[in-house]
């Protein structure tokens, strides 16, 4: 029988040493600088699309963090992003509460939702957990549509409250999403070095060993789902703000699968550049293919298979190449 954990094509720390780490850091800083300047040079529609791209990148991170730290796969993360999105949208439309006041409750509710889901499913793993997240994803649009008094039902809600009054709204949408994305990647980089992060990583591959050093399996599961749910809620919150509308069509079963596709395509990476790859994949491909929508699932499917199979065959291929070179 094969093992439970998702196999990861690349190891997180490049052990060739610090040099490549530093060059990666420089690349990240350059990318951040470019992202900061971009709205000055590109057209308005692109600024809007990139804002959504950043928000989706956060969603991709929420799935990747579950894979990296929990060894689990979710196809139901739209549930948590919907929680965040509707928290922001409802607080905005009902009470006129601006984003900086509605993001903390959105995050908190996402964490709580993650924990509430993790608790009854704490003993499930692998495909059993994946199937129960599937059920979660299916219930989302239905719940939103039926709670139309609160959620605006099929038509959804319009988020209009500015974050900083007086600044151009399109810029606010862009920079707010970028700021939250950067904050999430920063927080995840810290998590990797923290005591809790170490314990979670050990628990993923050797739950019995983690248990023997004081990190219960149930604790690990609940913690990972809480973190992941919180990040997904941030994704929803930023989708609501950057996209300015929230409706059930954004939280379908397919949207949940696409988040997973984005996570796979970014090779479950937790850094800013990797998250951007995933987010761009989810946002920009539909943008380019908007005229021929039927190609989107095909392309996503091919990309998903391509990355997974590359993760499988590439290491073997390089090994074989190395052997041939060594022999010659």
């Amino acid at each position: 029988m094969s093992d439970q954990n998702v196999s990861l094509p690349l190891s997180p720390v490049d052990q060739a040493g610090w040099r490549s780490l530093i060059s990666a850091q420089v690349g990240t800083w350059l990318l951040i600088a470019v992202a900061l300047c971009l709205p000055l040079v590109v057209a308005g529609s692109w600024v809007f699309a990139l804002g959504i791209c950043f928000a989706n990148a956060i969603g991709v991170l929420s799935v990747s963090v579950l894979v990296r730290y929990g060894g689990e796969v979710s196809i139901g993360h739209t549930f948590f992003s919907a929680v965040g999105a509707y928290t922001v949208a409802i607080l905005d439309t009902r009470f006129g509460i601006p984003l900086w006041l509605s993001v903390p409750p959105a995050l908190a509710l996402g964490v709580v939702a993650g924990i509430l889901f993790a608790w009854p499913s704490r003993r499930l793993s692998g495909i059993y957990l994946a199937v129960s997240t599937l059920a979660l994803a299916l219930a989302v649009p239905e719940i939103i549509n039926n709670a139309d008094g609160l959620t605006g039902g099929y038509e959804g809600l319009y988020v209009s409250e500015p974050l900083v009054p007086g600044v151009k709204m399109s810029l606010q949408r862009y920079y707010a999403a970028l700021a939250v994305l950067l904050a999430v990647t920063y927080g995840l980089a810290r998590l990797r070095r923290s005591r809790q992060g170490l314990a979670l990583l050990l628990s993923k591959s050797h739950p019995a060993a983690a248990d023997a050093f004081g990190a219960r399996q149930v604790w690990a599961r609940v913690a990972v789902m809480g973190i992941s749910g919180g990040i997904a809620a941030l994704c929803g919150a930023m989708l609501a703000f950057a996209g300015s509308t929230v409706s059930p069509s954004g939280f379908t079963f397919w949207a949940a699968i696409f988040l997973l596709v984005g996570s796979v395509v970014s090779v479950y990476g937790l850094t800013f550049p990797r998250a951007l790859i995933g987010g761009a994949f989810l946002t920009l491909i539909p943008q380019f293919l908007s005229a021929s929508g039927a190609w989107i699932p095909v392309l996503y499917g091919v990309a998903l298979l391509g990355v997974i199979l590359a993760g499988h065959y590439l290491p073997r291929l390089t090994q074989a190449m190395g052997r041939r070179k060594g022999g010659a």
């Binding site: 093992d3 439970q4 998702v6 796969v73 495909i127 596709v261 499917g301 091919v302 298979l305 997974i308």
Partner: peptide, 20 residues
């Protein structure tokens, strides 16, 4: 033979292609 969860994710890709 490597990881059943990875194989499961791959079936999602096949499903997407069939859908498209």
């Amino acid at each position: 033979f490597e990881s059943d969860l990875t194989a499961t994710i791959a079936t999602l890709g096949i499903g997407l292609i069939a859908q498209g």
